[in-house]
């Protein structure tokens, strides 16, 4: 499988702490990649580097364009990664625009296209046909994702008033409205009940199969990881300790040690 993104010897230091320590990995195109690892392994830091919130201390993050050229994302400013590289993410602690309705949230995600259509508010102020069409299209895209994620009923409800599991879905719908090429989900199953968790699995698979998206997600819920991912990367202490198909990773002794702790550590505890 060809990679969409290559992370190359990435290092992220905060003061004296090295959160990511020479990490290299590839995100295969059109597949679902899971990143797992104990708390503090550097998973979310990796996301923050990937989506431009942190500027890495060293290393490169390469995006492989469709025409075969490469682009180093560490040089792009934060908001331009979503805009130009079309890498969009969700957050571990949901970040919706709580006072705004679900539909509004989804329209904010299409800010670029709409702003261009509104000629930086000028055409919008004049209410030109061109802008009206762009707005209709934006609402149509939102409507499609709302329908696909079963959120149509909540379209006009303030996002902050929805139950937790629904908010998670709204955040994914919002990210999808930004037309991502790579969708990064930070613990999408956290706090979901079993039914919602099953729906999530179906959704992730559908996004890959029906929409051809590349997905990268951080998850602690092993049933989700093992069921849907094509490729699993295991991190610990800022490094990659294993990678491969879920079955192989599950049996990897290094991984088992990272999760269950060292034998002698256990002995020391006892």
């Amino acid at each position: 499988m060809t990679p969409l993104v290559t992370v190359d010897h990435l290092v992220m230091r905060f003061g004296g702490i090295t959160a990511i320590d020479g990490l290299s990995l590839q995100v295969p195109r059109g597949a679902i990649t899971a990143i797992i690892g104990p708390n503090g392994a550097g998973k979310t830091t990796l996301f923050n580097c990937l989506t431009g919130f942190y500027r890495p201390s060293a290393g490169r993050i390469l995006l492989h364009e469709d025409d075969g050229s490469e682009r180093d994302l560490t040089r792009l400013k934060g908001h331009r990664i979503a805009r130009e590289a079309r890498i969009v993410r969700t957050f571990q602690n949901i970040r919706l625009f709580g006072g705004m309705t679900v539909l509004e949230n989804l329209l904010v995600a299409q800010h670029q296209a709409l702003t261009r259509a509104s000629r930086f508010a000028l055409a919008g102020l004049l209410h030109t046909p061109g802008y009206r069409r762009a707005e209709r299209e934006a609402i149509e895209l939102a409507r499609r994702w709302l329908a696909e994620l079963g959120l149509t009923a909540f379209a006009d409800t303030p996002a902050g008033a929805l139950p937790y599991g629904t908010q998670r879905r709204v955040e994914i719908a919002r990210a999808l409205c930004a037309r991502p090429r790579l969708l990064c989900l930070d613990e999408p199953a956290a706090g979901l009940n079993p039914r919602e968790s099953a729906e999530l699995k179906a959704l992730l698979t559908a996004l890959r199969d029906a929409h051809g998206l590349t997905l990268l997600f951080i998850e602690h819920d092993m049933s989700v990881v093992m069921n849907v991912s094509d490729h699993v990367v295991v991190m610990n202490f800022g490094r990659k300790i294993a990678e491969g198909p879920p079955e192989a990773v599950r049996r990897d002794p290094e991984v088992i040690r990272a999760y269950l702790g060292e034998e002698d550590e256990e002995a020391a505890d006892a």
Binding site: T51, G52, F53, G78, H79, R80, I81, A82, R83, V88, R89, F91, R95, L96, F97, G98, G99, M100, E104, N105, V108, A109, H111, Q112, R174, A175, A178
Partner: peptide
């Protein structure tokens, strides 16, 4: 308004 609600989310949406 989105900015008022959550600046980080705004950045993540480009």
């Amino acid at each position: 308004e989105a900015l008022r609600e959550d600046e980080i989310a705004c950045k993540s949406l480009g």
